[in-house]
């Protein structure tokens, strides 16, 4: 077990090095340097700039040194906890990323808090009796909400709940401080999009377990139906959905760009998008490192959890 975790973490470091090198290489091109200049000084100012002034600007920004020197400097900074400064916002990347990550974390927490009970509950209820009316209703709803792209769901809930019913604001930028009501629509959009997928997986897993021979044994032992479901079926049926739910973490972190941008929510996905458009290389680097880390860690959690849930493949 320890061996597995250690090798995964080693893999993670390797991925981080490779990805950051690649990103640096891409953003080291003249075209991207120019883009930063345009973004900061304005297109007209850059075109009016003389060659010498441009060189001076590059030097001021630390962009004129050779690529490997910059990378080495950045890497040693990272090792010491210094992620550099954002070109765009001119503040330390570390605090910027931490703030945005917290915001996305709050969003992800509420999505999970609603989505997990909803999808597991409905999935189990549907899978208990395959082909029953309940199953068909749940399956239809699940397929319907999952088939809608996030952007469509976002528009629909905005129109209905913000513009129509006026229950919650349509914008989630929280410019006047933290407001839970602004969180409602993004969470709702993500839950609607995601729950169907997890519910369908849970349903399939539950339905398979219900046809297994050990459920037959449990029924023919004369156990009450409740006990058959709660004690015999549930644990085996939850193994597959568990791994899927943990892997959703990854998606909630970097895959929610559309929703964050749509609602103007100052989260991690939006940060990534802004940085990419600006060419803000240190922010992109930091965000990438965080994303890789979350991806690998969620995979480790899902693997370890799987072995704990499933005694058949427990180690040792």
């Amino acid at each position: 077990m320890l061996k597995l975790i250690a090798s995964r973490l080693l893999q993670m470091l390797l991925i981080m090095v490779v990805v950051s090198l690649l990103l640096f290489l891409i953003f080291d091109s003249d075209k991207f340097k120019k883009q930063i200049a345009v973004a900061e000084l304005g297109g007209f100012a850059v075109s009016a700039l003389s060659e010498q002034d441009y060189e001076a600007w590059l030097e001021k920004k630390g962009l004129n040194v050779a690529f490997y020197e910059r990378y080495a400097k950045w890497a040693s900074g990272v090792a010491h906890g210094n992620l550099g400064r954002s070109f765009e916002k001119n503040e330390p990347v570390l605090s910027l990323v931490a703030e945005r990550l917290t915001n996305t974390g709050i969003l992800a927490f509420w999505v999970f808090a609603l989505m997990i009970p909803l999808s597991l509950g409905l999935g189990i209820v549907a899978g208990m009796k395959e082909g029953s009316k309940r199953d068909r209703v749940v399956s239809f709803v699940a397929v319907f909400t999952t088939s809608l792209p996030e952007i469509a769901t976002a528009i629909i809930v905005t129109v209905v709940f913000a513009l129509g019913l006026r229950w919650v604001p349509a914008n989630s930028s929280m410019v006047n401080g933290w407001d839970w009501r602004q969180l409602v629509l993004p969470v709702m959009t993500l839950v609607l999009y995601d729950f169907g997928y997890v519910a369908r997986m849970t349903r399939a897993s539950m339905a398979e377990v219900m046809t297994s021979q050990y459920i037959r044994t449990a029924v023919l032992k004369g156990l009450p139906y409740r006990r058959v479901i709660m004690r015999h079926a549930l644990r085996n049926a939850l193994i597959a959905p568990f791994t899927i739910i943990v892997l959703q973490l990854n998606w909630l972190l970097s895959g929610v760009v559309v929703v964050e941008v749509f609602f103007q929510y100052a989260g991690f996905g939006k940060l990534l998008l802004d940085a990419a458009l600006f060419g803000d290389v240190y922010v992109i680097q930091a965000a990438t490192l965080v994303a890789v880390c979350v991806a690998v860690v969620s995979q480790i959690i899902s693997d370890v959890g799987y072995t704990l849930l499933n005694p058949r493949i427990r180690f040792g």
Binding site: Q213, Y214, R231, N236, N310
Partner: peptide
């Protein structure tokens, strides 16, 4: 039926591995 199953009529199956719950 439930009260009879497992108490008055009990059954032994062909595949012992599949008939036992793997996670209990």
């Amino acid at each position: 039926l439930r009260q009879i199953r497992g108490a008055k009529i009990a059954m032994v199956y062909q595949e012992p591995m599949a008939s036992l719950n793997p996670s209990m």
